[in-house]
């Protein structure tokens, strides 16, 4: 006899099942946290919009479009690019993010913000080359409709490569069917509910194995660390779904934004999984530290 109570096999089986359910609850908790971040976190989306690779690619596209229009309508591209600066594009990106996040709120504004084009029009009309190449009576129309409007569209598409008018069309119908704020509220509460369930299940393990607290620590630690490994594994496997590849077929900019967004989400998944991994292995360490006495 070693002086320690032996655990019956049904107690072991039930504990293992409880540990699996605890891990599942924790994985759902982390997934709900990440989904909530994806849908509501302005900082996450700003980190994508302000990423150097994304802003550089946006400015490259915008510059290319300005040069294309300049060649067509005979003005110096610098006239437009002095107005469409990286700062103004960044400010517009922030507006778009606020609009995008607001779509899931109580009172969504359906129409996406437009990049202000009045300054572009004024800059083009003031350009000497433009004045020389376009007849005076057409300058206003060409500057407004063919240059400023097109540049505004180019900036909008570089910032958000989606047909926002379609989103504005679909959203009211979606709102008629389901109340998005109610569902967002439920999603916000889901991590707490899952964490509470996981805590309850771990208490059940402790109650079941109260005669052997070290084994209870082992099962609870296994559940915590197992959940963390699952979250990390799922995050690592996510690129296999090839969402970036699907996006790249349609828009390079969207693929780039998806890539940066994935890295932001992966970092958040790591930050969520790390405490679970540490707590889990700390509990397993408690089990491993005890010395088993032999006669």
């Amino acid at each position: 006899m070693n002086g320690q109570t032996r655990i019956s096999w049904p107690a072991r089986a039930v504990s293992a099942l409880l540990a699996l359910l605890t891990a599942l609850a924790l994985v759902v908790c982390c997934a709900a946290m990440l989904a909530h971040s994806l849908l509501t976190s302005t900082s996450l989306h700003e980190s994508v919009a302000l990423d150097a690779r994304v802003t550089d690619a946006q400015m490259e596209r915008i510059t290319a479009r300005a040069e294309e229009l300049a060649a067509k309508y005979g003005f110096a591209p610098q006239s437009v690019l002095s107005v469409v600066t990286q700062d103004s594009v960044t400010a517009y990106s922030r507006e778009v993010i606020a609009w995008w996040m607001g779509l899931l709120g109580d009172e969504p504004v359906l129409e996406a913000p437009a990049y202000p084009t009045a300054d572009i029009e004024a800059a083009v009309r003031a350009d000497e080359l433009f004045q020389a190449s376009i007849p005076a009576v057409q300058q206003r129309t060409v500057a407004r409709d063919s240059v400023a409007y097109e540049m505004g569209r180019a900036v909008s598409r570089a910032v958000l490569p989606l047909r926002t008018e379609l989103i504005a069309l679909v959203m009211p119908r979606l709102q008629e069917r389901i109340s998005l704020p109610v569902w967002m509220n439920r999603l916000a509460k889901l991590p707490l509910v899952c964490a509470g369930a996981a805590l309850g299940l771990m208490l059940m393990i402790l109650l079941l194995l109260r005669a052997r607290p070290d084994k209870a620590a082992l099962y609870a630690g296994t559940a915590l660390a197992g959940a963390a490994l699952t979250v990390l594994g799922l995050t690592a496997l996510l690129p296999l779904l090839n969402l970036g590849g699907m996006a790249a077929e349609l828009s390079d900019m969207l693929a780039l934004q998806c890539g940066v967004l994935y890295k932001g989400l992966a970092l958040r998944a790591l930050l969520a999984a790390l405490p679970l991994l540490v707590c889990g292995y700390a509990l397993i360490f408690l089990h491993q530290r005890r010395r088993k006495a032999r006669p």
């Binding site: 963390a228 088993k292 032999r294």
Partner: peptide
Amino acid sequence: VSRPSRLFWLTPLLVALPLL
């Protein structure tokens, strides 16, 4: 006195692998 098996460190995999 003896320590428990080192294989116990791998038990989280018993949870993570089925879930994955």
